[in-house]
Design a binder for these strands. Structure first.
Lengths: 225, 225
DNA sequence: CCTACCGATCGGTAGG
DNA sequence: CCTACCGATCGGTAGG
């Protein structure tokens, strides 16, 4: 019906969307589509979003989407791949860069919080966690592998803290609690609200692991002369 | 299509489902439908479940559902109402029965964990949290009110703990962390897995609030003569 | 990227 | 609770 009623207003709206895109957003079409789709999937869910919804917000007609993607499912898969892969790589880099187990844990918490509520790809990560069940079965093994790889980083940090006697509970429980709390932030977090991401992250880390006021590495440098 | 192909096998399946229901499950039709719908909504999401799916598992044809409910949305609403109201009432009773702030918090954690992963209505609670965005706008005020009422119980317990000097972080953060961790259990919890609900609940409570080994109320009674 | 469609499936209804 | 449908909408396609 949207296509039979392709009125002059609709044509004009698409023309405007196209013009705006050219000046405001230089992203290649593929990426524009993914950004729009991630945002809509987050708001309405995968099954609650139609290919016509996505196309309309990109400023094209629904049929044109299938020049860029083979199917609606492929769009979902690409969003999740991007999110899962990016956070894996960043988590591994975080572990390498941090100098103490406690800092490893704190930085992982901050990374996940920032990815989920603050980053430019936050909708991608939200979709990865919320729409998992809508993934076609055939795509699950690939993403499960990335998920496990990501979890290894967490377990490694938690076990390092445990070995150093810093953990207030078992490493397994610590990871479950940290993950749950951070992902819960997807629901309640608002920029400018009660806590910033780093504030909440630090509260959370301090709750799970004891911070033996470390060698004064880089925080508050020079506050105690 | 499912209705045009109402084969003899399908008829027989319905007959069997009806017979089994009569002997195995004496629930009134309305409740049977809600149970089935809650289970399917949890597995596939609201938009991923069709009225035909629900009807098939109940053992009737899709048209017959609308003798019991006005619409698919009303089924979702009833599930959420039931879950939200029940947990509100139980939380308030929990606060009354507990004798110390620490016990209040522990029992709230246990209540929510048990509701979400163990209780007979666990799918109802999962749907309440996961399918919120699929609720028709018109129904949100009613459920938001119940949600706020439920949160009051949590805040009350958290603030009582805080006043008693038991909390390792601010009451606001404590509630956010407890809620997130407990709801995260919907994803990873398996009966017979790493932790039982009470074990995980106690780890969680002990992390957030210090247990000043209370007056030996009822736990391990008689262990110290 | 658009035009112009398609077969399938959706939630829901009327009358028994 | 079933029979027999409905209008709308869905994901996707062919040909330009």
């Amino acid at each position: 019906m949207d296509q039979k009623l392709d009125t002059n207003e609709a044509r004009k709206a698409r023309r405007n969307a196209r013009a705006e895109r050219r000046t405001v957003d230089p992203a290649v079409p593929r990426e524009r589509i993914l950004n729009v789709a991630a945002s809509l999937f987050r708001q309405r869910g995968y099954n609650g979003t139609t290919v016509r919804d996505i196309a309309a917000e990109v400023g094209i007609l629904s049929g044109s989407l299938f020049h860029h993607f083979q199917s609606k499912e492929e769009i979902l898969l690409e969003i999740m791949r991007e999110a899962a892969f990016t956070i894996c790589v960043r988590a591994e880099k975080t572990l390498e860069d941090a100098e103490t187990p406690w800092q490893q844990l704190r930085e992982l918490v901050r990374l996940e919080l920032e990815s989920i509520v603050g980053g430019v790809r936050k909708d991608y990560h939200a979709v990865l966690f919320f729409e998992w069940r809508d993934l076609p079965e055939a795509a699950k093994p690939e993403l499960t592998r990335l998920q496990k790889r990501y979890n290894r980083s967490w377990r490694q940090a938690a076990e390092a803290c445990h070995a150093a006697g810093l953990l207030r509970c078992e490493p397994d429980a610590a990871v479950l609690i940290l993950h749950g709390s951070v992902r819960g932030a997807m629901t309640w977090f608002r920029p400018g609200g009660r806590y910033s991401t780093d504030e909440f992250g630090d509260i959370l880390t301090a709750l799970v692991a004891i911070d033996i006021k470390d060698n004064g590495k880089d925080n508050h440098k020079g506050s105690k002369p």
